[in-house]
Amino acid sequence: MEQLFLFLENNLILIYLLIFTVILGFEVISKVPTVLHTPLMSGANAISGVVIIGAILLIRNASPTDYFSLSLGALGVILGMINVVGGFAVTNRMLKMFSKKKK
């Protein structure tokens, strides 16, 4: 129990961040018109590609002879990059059609 309190005490700012971000996510989405659900899901999906940063850090920290980490890290970067680039490009393509018909 004491350990738990210590953990909470030490990571208080992190816990604030977590809770506020969760609320922020709920708030941002809950007012969305149905029309935009698909582009929004696609956009949010592209943002989840932020995991690519982890893969970059993994490669940067790996020893140049550690081919196991390097190749898996590179695989991670490729997968993450497809998620990011593809996600944003596809979202933009969908949204472009909305703006075209507005004028």
Binding site: T21, V22, I23, L24, G25, F26, V28, I29, S30, V32, H37, L40, M41, A44, N45, I47, S48
Partner: peptide
Amino acid sequence: LVGSAGIIL
């Protein structure tokens, strides 16, 4: 952000 937005969606 994506986690909570995805769940509410």
